[in-house]
């Protein structure tokens, strides 16, 4: 009996705690203009403004007016309009960040009330990425030319953590591997190539088969180790750097090859872009 009483006591306590939700308290209403176009805008604006039990927002497509009912003890119109602006929509008080506006769907890109008059700074962050795909020349008479080039393409895509691009580059790599002219190799080269070929092929195929960067990186560890073996025997005219990330693979570390001396870590990408060091320079 006592236990039941206790349980009832606990339950009633819990109700006091959880029973506080429902209608908006200290409700105030305000209507302001928020610029937008369409039904999709309405959805985005209201979603950004709404907060359960605190804010209820309604945006009218025709008049572009946003009616906010809010708990004046917990928030204010400025805070709500900021959230709307972060989602890409201008009001007369706040102008959305350009990147938020640019990210809106095409049909939502309304005519902004205040334009950018200053010359927009060009985003040259991407400049130079396309050149990254290797122009490696004359790797032992070009025997490994294509393999190395497509290996670097895979590596560069991994640096960007772009699983789709990695897969695409790996398809090229599998083709390049299949096309290596074995008849032109020296005996020593042939031996090495035959030794690593099954593994290299398998890794390249696995990388091509998935868009999961994590999985791709796992195969990239062994792929890199084998390509390194290949490069040792086939020699390169241009310097290739053998680089190491000490953290990957639960701290066991993993290596990769690069044409650049500067570290651009394919195992973590931007998360740890410059993590790692060059362990050997192949020439």
């Amino acid at each position: 009996m006592k236990t039941i009483k206790n349980i009832l006591l606990m339950l009633s306590l819990l109700f006091v705690v959880t029973g506080c939700e429902g209608q908006i308290k200290n409700a105030k209403k305000e209507t302001v203009k928020v610029y937008g176009n369409c039904g999709m805008c309405k959805k985005t604006i209201e979603k950004a403004a709404n907060e359960k039990g605190v804010v209820k927002a309604d945006w009218d497509i025709d008049s572009n007016m946003l009616t906010m009912t809010y708990d004046s003890a917990k928030t204010n119109p400025d805070a709500i309009l900021k959230k709307v602006a972060y989602a890409g929509y201008d009001s007369d008080k706040f102008r959305a960040p350009d990147e938020a506006y640019d990210a809106l769907h095409g049909c939502c890109q309304y005519d902004r009330p205040v334009k950018n008059t200053a010359k927009a700074e060009s985003h040259d962050a991407h400049k130079g990425h396309d050149m990254a795909v290797s122009e490696t020349k004359d790797v032992q008479g070009g025997l490994m030319d294509k393999v190395i080039a497509s290996y670097f393409a895979v590596k560069d895509a991994l640096v960007k953590s772009n699983g789709t691009a990695v897969a695409t580059a790996a398809v090229e790599l599998t083709k390049a591997i299949a096309a290596v002219p074995m008849d032109k190799m020296t005996k020593e080269q042939h031996t090495i190539w035959m030794k690593v070929l099954p593994a290299v092929k398998e890794d390249a195929e696995h990388i091509a088969d998935t868009k999961d960067v994590k999985h791709q990186r796992e195969h990239f560890t062994t792929l890199s180790a084998n390509i390194y073996q290949v490069l040792k025997t086939f020699k390169t005219n241009e310097a290739v750097y053998y680089q190491k990330c000490p953290m990957f693979n639960d701290g066991k570390g993993a290596n990769w090859l690069s044409k650049d001396k500067d570290i651009k870590n394919p195992y973590y990408g931007s998360a740890m872009l410059t993590c790692g060091s060059t362990v050997e320079t192949l020439k």
């Binding site: 007369d92 706040f94 960040p97 205040v114």
Partner: peptide, 24 residues
């Protein structure tokens, strides 16, 4: 002066990624 040009706020931290890194 004028309409307030906002900067996109820095998004919330991914604590578990940090935890994973600390574990290592």
């Amino acid at each position: 002066q004028g309409v307030r040009q906002l900067k996109q706020p820095l998004p919330k931290l991914k604590y578990f990624e940090g935890m994973k890194m600390m574990n290592d």
